[in-house]
Design a protein around this nucleic acid. Structure first.
Length: 824
RNA sequence: GCGGCUGUGGCGAAAUGGCAGACGCGCUAGCUUCAGGAGCUAGUGAUGGCAACAUCAUGGUGGUUCGAAUCCACUCAGCCGCACCA
């Protein structure tokens, strides 16, 4: 028998699969579809182990579902716009497009070497004009629906990347990509109105039964819905009003001051001409210059200054001082807050620091609180005190009553607020989809007409370190004619956040070559939503939230007929080595290419699926890889040993004629088929699926020196073994299949069914317990009922010995499992 | 502070109310081989014992139960997310 040589086999089959296009998929409304998708990669140039894990998981599902009879869509593509291509241009003088396409070529080669079942005819690359034309079309769709707008705002700016960032892309005050500090900058930028969908994005999390709770919680936190009231304090000296937002309207009688964010437009008016104006301005500048992290950290010291002005509480006419502070955010609510030191921890600290008045307005249910004994704010429910007509009311009820009072007196209304902000999508970069807008001195902001899309990226641009966006310097690009009046105009020179490109790519896969639409309705509605999406947890908010938003907008525009893009989500764990994430700086990187070159793709895939369940972090082990390789060799040898017999063996045979040992092998086979089926289909527990296949192979080895084994059984075991191993190790199984079965691909076979009759055991070993402790074992007829089991247990010599002289309180018998005798 | 996840042999892990540690790695022994870091077979949680066997053991403490890694309460440790959002 020939040795198992993965390289020859893998190369041969990869070629054949590609030539014969066995993974090509067509829409077929007659058939049930299944859409399995792995998050497409950024083309950095090389696959890493995280990719290998991601694609291995997806490939098992795709192959399994195909064998189950589904019409499976399993595509791949590249999230090809982004900064690194531009950095390469600056550093090495290569064109971003050349750099990107050569990286894509290399990664595609590596993906092919993994033996993944992609329909490559559906590949999508977001940097191709054929694709970004539709990204720009999407922008225009949003614009026309009033969901894209330009405004001047204080935005997150990363100096290293030379561009702005969305809120979701700032992690702990640092840039998500390069980890450098983010600072605020006032710029006029494009936004998508994701806040219009805040409530639905929150509510529809309930529809996502197949998503991990963790991800849903993160999105829920991010959206940050809160309910309360918005109403105004009068500032009679200036004939102004200060609207405030509060989630605790029941504490209004405890207000002793009002605070404004330093950016609040009213501040200017209030402080003008004050004797300490210069001092106040210095404080404002200081606050404005704080980093995002300092400014929003809960531990930062709360500082403020009195403006010298007063506001009037509409509930009791009380005059309270107006302060400015570093702890109120201008972007949230109204940028102004009512200060209630007794019932808000921050206000307590602030009041304590500056000696502001405190009034108790909510007492605890026992009524034992008093200002003299309190040492921090009381924030729990209770009973209102010192609250005029509302005194004595339960605090929860008072919320509603006070809101009603606000509405009745026409000073405000019930209000829901979100932490979520609109999505800032402008990027001052070259390598992205240009925003298809023209600025005309006469017509203003004008969309590039649909038929003129795409607005193509110019090729003749210069890349220099630290300079402004290359597009802004490219006069051929900037200067254009106004589509409306035909006069001279200038193009928008910012490109779109690459997260826009990835917010709809999974829909493009359903109709990738469409030149007249982003995708045809019948195709997208046949294939989408994605049944199973697989990727890293790092996109819990970013990509996954944006894609949900896009889906809802496209639905409202009538382009798609579903509410959510990804029905089920699997978040895979990281691949780690020596306890920490693989990284160049730690020198613990294992290259997939080397592993595949050494052991073959089947071994790499098998190991990575076997070493841990998909959601958990996976510790890389070189010895574990050896073990996977050894297992495939074992399969190769045992199948090879019997190959000749199996080829000539009958498909049908008399099961009753099997020996006891043969029957046991057949039982293990069917138990394994059931286990593997359920582990893949219901639990994604590929590790236990593989371990049960290993057990089957171990059981098979009992017959290695027994050529007299029933040929029919031998054929059944061998063929089914190859089939159930096929999703995990596609090449070796294809080779064995072609050798034995002779025709067709194993990957197009039907998944084996298990026969419950074959799984029945005549005899089972049960455990005998006395007071819950194992005291013996007994092999009995599996069909025995409870009484018979009890009987058998009580006759067991050791049990008799231990029970002798004691009173039996109770006997519990569980068929096929155990008998527990409770004695005293 | 709020929310979530994870704690099981020397290691990766199984077991979701019924024999804790399946399967794999590592280790030990035997067989096989000219030899092997190849292959096959067997053993392998700890402690005590010649042994049968017993006791202990799933981060900790309590509880529910005939029976708990599994359910409940509290608690410790590690990781992750959000965090001055009024």
């Amino acid at each position: 028998m020939e040795k198992y040589s993965p390289h020859e086999i893998e190369k041969k089959w990869q070629q054949k699969w590609a030539d014969e296009k066995i993974y090509k998929t067509e829409m077929n409304p007659e058939r049930k579809k299944y859409y399995v998708l792995e998050m497409f990669p950024y083309p950095s140039g090389n696959l890493h182990m995280g990719h290998v894990r991601n694609y291995s998981i997806g490939d098992v599902l795709a192959r399994y579902k195909t064998m189950e009879g589904f019409n499976v869509l399993h595509p791949m593509g590249f999230d090809a716009f982004g900064m690194p291509a531009e950095n390469a241009a600056i550093k090495h003088g290569v064109k971003p497009s050349d750099w990107t396409y050569s990286n894509i070529d290399n990664m595609k080669r590596q993906q092919r070497e993994m033996g993944l079942s992609y329909d490559w005819d559906r590949e999508v690359e977001t940097c191709r004009p054929e694709y970004y034309r539709w990204t720009q079309w999407m922008f225009e769709l949003f614009y026309r629906r009033g969901l894209a707008y330009k405004k001047k705002a204080s935005v997150n700016w990363c100096d290293t990347c030379g561009t702005v960032l969305a809120n979701e892309q700032v992690i702990d005050g640092k840039c998500w990509r390069c980890d450098s500090d983010v600072r605020k900058k006032d710029l006029s930028q494009w936004f998508l109105k994701i806040t219009d969908y805040a409530d639905e994005l929150l509510k529809d999390l309930d529809l996502l039964k197949g998503w991990p709770d963790r991800v849903k919680t993160m999105q829920e936190n991010w959206i940050g819905r809160s309910e309360g009231a918005e109403f105004s304090f009068d500032v009679p000296d200036f004939q102004e009003k200060i609207p405030v937002y509060t989630t605790c309207p029941h504490t209004v009688f405890g207000v002793t001051y009002v605070v404004l964010a330093v950016e609040h437009p009213l501040v200017e008016k209030l402080i003008q001409g004050r004797e300490n104006e210069a001092e106040i301005r210095a404080f404002m500048d200081e606050t404005r210059n704080m980093s995002e992290l300092e400014r929003t950290s809960a531990d930062s010291e709360k500082k403020g200054m009195f403006t010298g002005a007063y506001a009037v509480n509409p509930f009791n006419g009380k005059r309270v001082p107006i302060w400015i502070t570093n702890y109120v955010l201008y972007e949230y609510g109204t940028g102004a807050v009512m200060g209630v030191p007794t019932h808000d921890e921050r206000d307590w600290m602030f009041a304590a620091k500056y000696g502001l008045e405190k009034i108790l307005v909510v007492n605890n249910p026992e009524g034992t609180l008093s200002l003299d004994t309190m040492d921090n704010a009381y924030v729990d429910p209770g009973v209102l005190v010192n609250s005029g007509a509302f005194t004595g009311m339960d605090s929860e009820k008072a919320k509603g009553a006070i809101i009603q009072w606000i509405v009745d007196h026409n000073i405000g209304q019930r209000k829901v607020n979100y932490r979520l902000r609109d999505w800032l999508i402008s990027r001052q970069r070259y390598w992205g989809a240009p925003i298809p807008v023209v600025y005309c001195p006469h017509c203003g902001e004008v969309l590039v007409p649909e038929e003129q899309l795409p607005v193509k990226l110019p090729e003749n641009v210069k890349f220099e370190q630290g300079s402004v966006s290359p597009l802004a310097q490219c006069s051929d690009f900037v200067n254009c004619t106004c589509p409306k009046c035909g006069g001279p105009a200038k193009r928008e020179t910012d490109t779109m956040d690459t997260f826009i490109c990835s917010s709809w790519y999974y829909m493009r896969y359903t109709d990738p070559d469409n030149a007249t639409m982003p995708f045809a309705k019948d195709k997208v509605n046949y294939w989408a939503p994605v049944n199973q999406y697989i990727g890293g947890i790092e996109h819990a908010i970013l990509h996954l939230l944006y894609s949900r938003f896009f889906t809802k907008v496209l639905r409202d525009a009538g382009l798609v007929g579903f509410d959510e893009p990804f029905t089920n989500l699997l978040t895979q764990g990281m691949v780690i080595k020596d306890g920490s994430k693989m990284s160049k700086s730690k020198g613990n990187v294992i290259s997939p290419e080397e592993i595949i070159a050494h052991y073959g793709a089947d071994t790499a895939r098998l190991f990575i699926l076997f070493a841990a369940p998909p959601e958990r972090d996976l510790e890389w082990s070189d010895q574990g890889v050896e073990g996977a390789f050894r297992f495939l060799n074992r399969v190769w040898r045992i199948v090879g040993q019997f190959a000749a017999t199996v080829k000539n063996a009958p498909d049908v045979y008399d099961v009753k004629a099997l020996t006891k040992e043969e029957k046991e092998l057949r039982r293990v086979l069917h138990v394994t088929i059931k286990k593997v089926t359920e582990d893949i289909r219901d639990r994604f527990m590929f590790n236990t699926a593989i371990s049960s296949i290993m057990e089957l192979v171990n059981a098979f080895y009992v017959f290695q020196d027994k050529p007299e084994i029933n040929a029919g059984l031998l054929r059944e075991v061998t063929l089914d073994l190859i089939k159930i191993l096929a999703p995990f190790a596609p090449h070796i199984t294809e080779e064995l299949w072609s050798d034995i079965a002779g025709q067709g691909s194993v990957h197009q076979q039907q998944w084996p069914a298990y026969d419950p009759a074959a799984m029945v055991q005549d005899e089972v070993e049960i455990v005998l317990q006395i007071n819950g402790k194992v005291r013996g074992k007994l092999v009995i007829d599996a069909a025995l009922d409870r009484e018979a089991m009890e009987q058998a247990a009580l006759e067991h010599p050791r049990v008799r010995e231990l029970v002798a002289g004691k009173g039996i309180v109770k006997v519990i018998a569980v068929p096929k499992k155990l008998v527990n005798i409770v004695v005293k």
